[in-house]
Simulated scan of single mutants.
Amino acid sequence: MTENEQRLQKVLASAGVGSRRASEELIAEGRVTVDGKVAILGSRVDPSTAVIHVDGERLITDVRTVHLALNKPRGVVSSMSDEQGRPSLANYVTAVPERIFHVGRLDTDSEGLLLLTNDGDLAHRLMHPSYEIAKTYRCEVRGPVSPFLGKKLAKGVTLDDGPVSVDDFRIIDEFESRSLVEIVVHEGRKHIVRRLLDHVGHPVYRLVRTKIGTVALGNLKPGTVRNLNQGELGALYKAVGL
């Protein structure tokens, strides 16, 4: 036993699962695992190292772990520093002492959701194409859009670096010479959404990423960050098998 170990029900309650009594019931019902094994009442764990799942979803108990959502403004570089002195992601996390990674990229002219974390395993898996994490974008594009474009994109088109298809596509609104569309892809190739829409004749004027997996941008204002909640974290870790 180490000095950091605590009763499991206390750890669960501190992480927001419920009261200690409710946490004890979860343990008694066999719904909690620690390091891959079903937990028992009276168990003690080190919250900084234990891998805890409740109903199959990961519970983050290490207070040193950072998981943030950032609404990246246009003109900000998707890196923690920039040799040219342009605004970077570091400008928005000055209060975070840990080294953090950004999950994926948005080009300088694009806006919207970026995830920031110091969990390297999570960041790597979320970016790896084998896990097929869906990303949702809203794009203002040139011209009226054919109602049949969604079917064409679902079947797939071939770009200069290979074929690509979308998971979902819909027209949200139409103006005189522009349209607002939503597109969902799990591809991570560079500028994939811009290149795809340009290829089918609808160059992008504005691009905003609104979701990564089940994490939504929501009403987060440009240039601000928030902590992910336990529900969002559980879904992300489950999606990548952690």
Score class of each variant (00 low, 15 high):
45 V>K: 00
102 H>R: 01
53 H>S: 13
50 A>N: 14
95 A>F: 11
108 T>Q: 12
63 V>L: 14
41 L>N: 09
72 K>Y: 08
74 R>D: 08
126 L>G: 05
39 A>Q: 10
92 Y>T: 06
126 L>A: 04
45 V>D: 06
70 L>Y: 06
67 H>A: 14
140 E>P: 02
47 P>M: 11
94 T>Q: 14
28 A>M: 04
58 R>P: 07
66 V>R: 00
85 G>M: 13
60 I>G: 08
114 L>P: 06
117 T>L: 10
107 D>K: 03
50 A>S: 14
125 R>P: 00
112 G>P: 11
57 E>S: 13
56 G>H: 11
32 V>Y: 14
139 C>M: 12
65 T>R: 14
35 D>A: 14
102 H>D: 00
30 G>K: 12
138 R>D: 01
29 E>L: 15
112 G>T: 06
76 V>T: 11
37 K>P: 00
39 A>N: 08
98 E>I: 01
81 S>C: 04
99 R>K: 08
39 A>I: 09
79 S>I: 01
105 R>H: 04
55 D>C: 08
68 L>H: 02
88 S>G: 08
137 Y>T: 07
87 P>W: 05
116 L>S: 03
82 D>C: 12
56 G>S: 10
95 A>N: 13
72 K>E: 12
142 R>M: 10
76 V>A: 08
130 S>N: 02
97 P>I: 09
58 R>L: 05
45 V>G: 00
102 H>Q: 01
89 L>A: 12
57 E>C: 09
121 D>R: 07
38 V>D: 05
